[in-house]
Structure formats: structure tokens, C-alpha cells
Write a protein that binds this DNA or RNA. Structure first.
Length: 424
RNA sequence: GCCCGAAUAGUGUAGCCUGGUAACAUAUGGGACUGUGGAUCCUCUGUGCCGGGUUCAAAUCCCGGUUCGGGCCCCA
């Protein structure tokens, strides 16, 4: 027997229903914030991803050579393709340019819950605006997007790479030592971080203060630490403006400052953020983003960019874990012809109701009424129309409400009107 | 890539320890019931992840692989 390749999934109608719901919810939120949708190819030139993330990333890609000898890769994320498209076609668009996307991505990882080799991301990029209000809106959008899907428990954490490097500078570390230190900081393993600092001959006192600043949410404490670094002070001022807009204008106050967010790659600058769903355990990060510099790496003229990506599959998992009720897949009407002579009329009624925008099906296996009703019940149909000779003589049919069990005889011309009344 | 656990009809499970005809529920198909039977009853089909080993005999014990799940690594 054949099965899906490792780390991939089929989505059957009940699952697609959930995914469509989520996609529509997210698209509506993006649109309401003035974003336009963009779609790029499923594969790109391998070089694009290597340029963005370094050669070492190739190990984790689905990469291949096509018949023309081109080196290609299935996209592992969507920021690089979107920025490539911007540089290629959209540089002269009025700014700011706001783009959102959905797309399948591919990574050669070990699959586990919430982690697949083929997975879907949703996300956006804003190009050409780096004011506090633009950044605050980006944070608000990420948070609102997830809240609007129906998620209850999420955590927004905000860090800043400019500040963290200013703080690191105070420790006078060598570049290599910094690189060794950062992963531990990102994972909040502060004891390990401390022992590295000790190895690097950082004074115990400074190390303690450094670790405590990473964990604080108090901007004043951070300010005292970096007071003599004018660039860092400026960044902190901007960050405070962003946070105050977030609370006072966007009315989002459920965030925390977490300077230990480092994120993977070098091209992030300034503000970075993550949103977690703690209910998911090990693979709990739903969203990651921030400001970055990619346009110039791809050969475009420099312009500020920021954005975020959301793990679509994890968002569904988190909603399921929270017991969220997705809108069910349902038929509006099921039509049962009592005998073969009624089939033509049944189909005519079905076609008429379909033209009014209802989803309609009819009995096609010539089963008796009992079986047909059972089928309608299993399909969660709201209303059933029974077309039988007795009623048809008077040009009527029986409409049965499956929830209440109410039945009514209705003229054929009045079916649609009757179905749209609240009691039927 | 590493460590651990799991895999039995479409779905959910029992049996495995202690080897001896593979079972139950539910769902699907067919039928009884000739217009409400969304019921009830009858019934067909359908199951040991794959490969090897031990054994007279393997779902059961052993080895390898695959897939899924938990935890690492990584997480653009």
C-alpha cells in the first residue's frame, strides 16, 4: 500500500474546512489592515536561500537539479521569495508596500507534532516604513490576526537586537564568544550563559547585572544600563514609543519585553518579536518576526523592511487544543424523491435553490425515506425536502427541519422563501 | 542527526506479559419495513505496518526497516 511521504499529510474535507476557515479569517484581518495578497512560486533558485541564510542551510532544504541543470529548491519560508519579487518587480510601487501571503513550505526536518516537512505559513512584509507607528501596527496585526482566529491564550514577546548588542558591547566580549553566548540566551539558559561569561573573564558582578537585564521588563533598568550609548538610547526611545502606541492606541497590553529573544539570523535588525501558544508544549512558537535587511542583499536599493510569519498548522493545532469549535461543513438542504417519478422535480428544485446560493444535494441512491433521512442526518443537513406524489398533485412538497422535527407542506414556488424564514 | 515509546477492520479498542482458529463496538454497503423507520432487526465486506529470524506453531518472542508520537539538535 502507498502512503504519504514522511512528514506530509492529506487534508480530508473535515480538515480542509478548518484550514479554509483559518485562511479566510486571516485574509480578512490582513485585508482590514490594508495588506494585499501576493503569491510566489513553490520553488526558487537555490542561490536565493543560500544568499539569505548561508550555505549551511542547504542541508535542510529540499534541493534538486532540474533537467536544464538549474539548481533549485522548494521554498523553506516565504520572506526571501517575497523580497525577491519586490526587488524584481515592485520597487517603484508607492510606499509603504504591504504584502501578505499563504503558502506551502518545505524543510528537511525530523517531523513531530506541529512540525512537518511540508507545512503552511501565513505572513506579511511591510516595505518602506520603519516609523514607530508602522512597527507598532505590525505587532498589533500579528497579535490581532491570531486573536481573530479565536485563539484565547497567546503570549507576545518583544525583544530588540540593537539593544542586546549594545548591552553585549558593555561586556567587551570577543566576537566568537558572543556567538557562543547567543544561543544560550535565546533559549533562556542563563546558568549556562553565566558560565560562558565566567570563562571569558567577565566580572561576576557585570555578569549578574547582564543576566538580570535580559530578564527584566523594566525599561528604566535597561535605560540605566545603556545610558552612555546614544544610539542605543535612541533605539530604546523608539521602542518605548512603539510600546506606548501598542497599549494606548491599539489597546493591546498583553505583551512582555524579553530582550533574550535573539532569533536565528544576522539579517534581523532592531525590533524582533515572537508569539507563543503555551498549550502546544515543545513546538509552541506560532509567530516570529521583526525588522530585517534583505533588500540590499538581493540587489535592491536600501529600504526598511519588517514582517512576520505564522505557522498555519500550529495555529490549527492550538485552536484544537483550546477546544475551539470550527464552523462545520454542512449542506443547507437535502431533497428526497419518494419514488423514481419524483426525480425530475427533485432535481429542478435542487437547481433552483442552488441558483439562490444554497448548498443542495439530493438522494441519488434510490434509498427509502428512512435511509435517506439517516444519510441527511449523518451529513448534518439542516432541512430536508420530501417530494412525493401526494403533495405533488397539489404542486407542493414537504419541508422538514431536522433539528426541530417540524414539518410543513409548502407550494413549490414558495420553497426558497420558506427556507429563508427563521422558523424553517 | 540523537534518545525514548507506539503501530491490530474506515474509526475506537481487546488479546501480547504466559506463542496454539483474531475479537468487540461503531461506521460504510445490501436487505426487511411500499411516505418520516433520523428507529429497530437481519446481513455482506473489511483487520495483525513491512521484511527477516526463533519455533511443530508468531498479532504475541528476537533483529532490521518504515511511519507516527514524546524529548533533544535545529528552527530561516
Amino acid at each position: 500500500m502507498f502512503q504519504v511521504p514522511r512528514g506530509t499529510r492529506d487534508f480530508i474535507p473535515g480538515e480542509m474546512q478548518k484550514r479554509r476557515y483559518l485562511e479566510q479569517s486571516m485574509a480578512a484581518t490582513f485585508t482590514s489592515f490594508g495588506y494585499g495578497e501576493i503569491r510566489t512560486p513553490t520553488f526558487e533558485n537555490l542561490e536565493l536561500f543560500a544568499a539569505k541564510s548561508g550555505e549551511s542551510i542547504i542541508n535542510e532544504l529540499y534541493a534538486f537539479t532540474d533537467k536544464g541543470g538549474r539548481k533549485l529548491a522548494l521554498r523553506p519560508e516565504l520572506t526571501a521569495p517575497v523580497i525577491r519579487c519586490y526587488v524584481e518587480r515592485l520597487q517603484m510601487e508607492p510606499k509603504p508596500l504591504k504584502l501578505f501571503y499563504f503558502g506551502n513550505c518545505y524543510r528537511y526536518d525530523r517531523p513531530q507534532k506541529g512540525r512537518y516537512r511540508e507545512f503552511q505559513q501565513a505572513g506579511c512584509e511591510i516595505i518602506g516604513a520603519d516609523t514607530s507607528e508602522a512597527t507598532a501596527e505590525l505587532l498589533a496585526l500579528a497579535f490581532t490576526l491570531l486573536k481573530n482566529t479565536g485563539l484565547k491564550n497567546i503570549q507576545l514577546q518583544i525583544g530588540n537586537l540593537t539593544l542586546i548588542s549594545a548591552i553585549l558591547k558593555k561586556l567587551h566580549l570577543l566576537e566568537d564568544d558572543q556567538k557562543r553566548l547567543l544561543p544560550f540566551i535565546d533559549k533562556a539558559q542563563f546558568d549556562d550563559a553565566k558560565s560562558i561569561l565566567r570563562d571569558c573573564n567577565v566580572k561576576e558582578n557585570d555578569a549578574e547585572r547582564f543576566i538580570s537585564i535580559l530578564q527584566t521588563s523594566d525599561t528604566n533598568e535597561i535605560r540605566r544600563f545603556i545610558a552612555d550609548d546614544t544610539q542605543a538610547v535612541k533605539e530604546l526611545d523608539a521602542m518605548q514609543t512603539i510600546l506606548s502606541l501598542l497599549s494606548n492606541a491599539f489597546h493591546i497590553s498583553e505583551y512582555e519585553i524579553k530582550l533574550s529573544i535573539v532569533r536565528g539570523l544576522d539579517y534581523y535588525k532592531g525590533l524582533v518579536f515572537e508569539i507563543d501558544a503555551p498549550i502546544l508544549g515543545a513546538e509552541k512558537q506560532l509567530c516570529g518576526g521583526g525588522s530585517y535587511e534583505l533588500v540590499s542583499i538581493f540587489g535592491g536599493s536600501q529600504v526598511p523592511t519588517s514582517g512576520f510569519a505564522i505557522g498555519f498548522d500550529r495555529t490549527i493545532l492550538a485552536l484544537e487544543e483550546e477546544g475551539f469549535t470550527f464552523p462545520p461543513l454542512k449542506l443547507d438542504v437535502f431533497i428526497i424523491p419518494v419514488n423514481q417519478d419524483m426525480v425530475t422535480t427533485a432535481i429542478q428544485i435542487a437547481q433552483n435553490l442552488r441558483s439562490h446560493g444554497l448548498s443542495v444535494d439530493f438522494e441519488q441512491l434510490r434509498r427509502g425515506i428512512g435511509r435517506s433521512l439517516k444519510y441527511a442526518d449523518a451529513k448534518h443537513v439542516e432541512r430536508v425536502i420530501i417530494v412525493g406524489p401526494k403533495e405533488l398533485e397539489k404542486n407542493t412538497v414537504t419541508i422538514r427541519n431536522m433539528k426541530t422535527g417540524n414539518q410543513e407542506t409548502v407550494g413549490i414556488a414558495e420553497i426558497y422563501a420558506k427556507l429563508t424564514t427563521p422558523d424553517m
